[in-house]
Write a protein that binds this DNA or RNA. Structure first.
Length: 200
DNA sequence: CCCTGATTCGC
DNA sequence: GCGAATCAGG
């Protein structure tokens, strides 16, 4: 595989979205995470926006002389609108939870630990019955943790009403890089088409 | 041990 | 330019 324009674009997009190199590599296929990282560096987009907690170790004061005095612009220059991508879909205000126990907006918003990007809201999206079934089943075996018992390794999917006693977090082992266990990741992150059109 | 990105260096 | 091997950290 080679770095076609398309692949590079995907790489750029995913990288800026905060996806990990391995995730990107998986997505692209035919490349390893090393390849992705290597490419990222060659493209000169090594640092992403956000927490510099990754691997700062030592941040040598590398000041980038953005624009030498050479070219002096007549000022006025546009404020550079920057990118403002935030397709935050208007979430439906649903005061109740699904019969399958899927929490809605309010609870979720408050609980989400602010991981990396953001958990795309299922909103209008339909979740596969399989995934939902999986969730309701998982909730039986959930560890029912309290807020303070949560760690990076515990699923942070909230269940129940935070305002009542009947509220807890799944607490099962999270999926690497995700805030939820596999089952909950399944309903939190929908690929695209969850509907399986079965036709003859 | 799982993972992460960073760097090096032969190709 | 590419990416495996390696390094360094969580």
């Amino acid at each position: 595989m080679s770095w076609t324009d398309e692949r590079v674009e995907t790489l750029k997009k995913m990288w800026s979205e905060g996806q990990s190199a391995s995730q990107i590599a998986k997505e692209l296929g035919g490349v390893t995470r090393n390849a992705v990282i290597g490419k990222v560096h060659r493209l000169g987009l090594s640092n992403r926006a956000g927490s510099g907690t990754a691997t700062p170790t030592k941040a040598p004061a590398k000041e980038k002389p953005a624009a030498p005095a050479a070219a002096t612009k007549p000022a006025v220059a546009k404020p550079a609108p920057k990118a403002m991508p935030d397709p935050v879909p208007a979430i439906k205000e649903e005061p109740e939870v699904d019969e399958n126990g899927i929490p809605i907006s309010a609870a979720r918003r408050a609980i989400i630990p602010a991981g990396q990007p953001l958990p795309p809201q299922p909103s209008a999206n339909e979740i596969s019955p399989e995934a939902l079934a999986k969730v309701s089943e998982v909730e039986k075996t959930a560890k029912r943790l309290t807020l303070m018992e949560l760690t990076e390794k515990t699923c942070k999917w909230p269940v129940g009403d935070p305002a009542t006693d009947d509220f807890w977090f799944c607490g099962l082992a999270v999926q690497q890089g995700k805030p939820y266990c596999e089952a909950h990741v399944g309903v939190a992150f929908q690929p695209m088409s969850s509907r399986r059109d079965r036709r003859r």
